[in-house]
Simulated assay, not measured.
Amino acid sequence: MKKHNFSAGPCILPHEVFEKSAEAIINFNNSGLSILEISHRSKDFLAVMEEARMLVLNLLGLEGKGYQALFFHGGASMEFLMVPYNLMKVDGKAAYLDTGTWANNAIKEAKLFGETQIVASSKEANYNYVPKIYSIANDASYFHCTSNNTIFGTQMKSFPITTVPIVCDMSSDIFSRNLDFSQFDLIYAGAQKNLGPAGTTLVVVKEEILGKSGRTIPSILDYEKQIKAESMYNTPAVFPIYASLLTLRWLKKNGGIAAIEKINEAKANLLYSEIDRNCLFKGTANIEDRSSMNATFILENNAHQEDFDKMWTAAGISGLTGHRSIGGYRASMYNAMPIQSVQVLVAVMQELENKNK
């Protein structure tokens, strides 16, 4: 039986992506070869890379606006390094918003390259909210933020208006909601949430912001060189990129970001309504900053934990345990999560309440 996968990542993907990926592992494009063994320079894979990059810009509404879509190795953690390497000017500075563990990790890497200003932080409240009042220096090389925080269950609902280039880590909510993506000068995202399996990372960058740092950048870390090589500077992650293409096709076929946003809102509203209604549970993130992707909550009385854990496990639910750093529970509801799985979780929560009346 297929389980209800609430894992934060690697996470659930559309069933048809699994099916088509499985077919390609045996015989890709009727070539008699597996996707796992074809040349990354073959005509078939070059077509995969080209379509995937094109679909990214199409879905984000960035076609013809001076952006390039690239696929890299190294996860979002590599981008923590590549962003300041490419964008922070020598003897310059960058501005960072600290909203959680991954934002903090990005800040640590940026400090290796120059002055890194933390414009605001919610660390003192265990990152249970997103700061909204802060100023960004006009001479900063860029402003960096994390749109969604998987560990603490918060999400930025708006972004600052500034003349400084905006860089956003969208690893856990890319393609999940309508935004004006042209407000961002660089977006990056690990694939393993809403895009594909672990192993590749998407970067979408406005070309005009590049080449201004004054740094000598190692070739493999240089966005300009990667653009020139069309994401083929070295052997790309062939299978994860192919699976990502299948996910992008699935999203496009089903109405794109506008359509999936409505589904995601329905799932989030269903679960948060139960968390707020049920006397046994309590949400951990500020209501106005709650993430539609990752709902974090706790039991009001830990005496119910053993019973609750047995119940959701018996219901076929997987990956509900909160991050090891904060505990509690975390229900990740990425694009491919059907609302029926959320209904199963809500039913278990109600059953626990009924047993303890």
Rank of each mutant, 00 (worst) to 15 (best):
T154E: 07
T154V: 11
S158W: 10
P160C: 13
P160Q: 08
T162S: 13
P165M: 05
P165N: 10
I166F: 04
I166G: 03
D169E: 08
S171V: 00
S172A: 04
D173V: 04
F175S: 02
R177C: 03
L179Y: 10
S182W: 11
F184A: 08
F184V: 07
A189G: 10
A189C: 02
A189Y: 01
A191P: 02
L195P: 03
G196Q: 03
P197I: 05
A198Y: 07
A198E: 09
A198I: 01
G199R: 00
G199M: 01
T201A: 00
T201D: 02
L202G: 02
L202D: 04
L202N: 01
V203A: 02
V203W: 02
V204K: 11
V204P: 09
E207F: 06
E207Y: 06
E208D: 12
E208A: 04
G211I: 05
K212F: 15
K212Q: 15
S213E: 09
G214F: 02
G214A: 06
R215Y: 07
P218C: 11
D222E: 05
Y223R: 02
Y223E: 03
Q226R: 13
Q226E: 08
I227T: 08
K228H: 03
A229N: 05
A229H: 09
M232I: 09
M232G: 12
Y233P: 02
Y233E: 15
N234R: 15
A237F: 03
V238A: 12
P240S: 03
A243L: 06
S244P: 12
L246V: 09
L246F: 08
L246I: 13
K252D: 03
K253T: 11
K253M: 10
G255N: 04
G256R: 06
A259S: 10
I260Y: 11
E261S: 04
E261I: 01
E261V: 03
K262L: 11
N264W: 00
N264E: 00
N264L: 06
E265K: 09
K267T: 03
A268Q: 15
A268V: 14
N269C: 15
E274A: 13
D276Y: 12
R277H: 11
N278A: 12
F281D: 02
F281Q: 01
F281V: 02
G283C: 10
T284S: 08
T284E: 07
A285P: 06
I287K: 15
E288D: 14
E288P: 11
D289K: 04
R290T: 13
R290Y: 10
R290D: 07
R290W: 09
S292E: 14
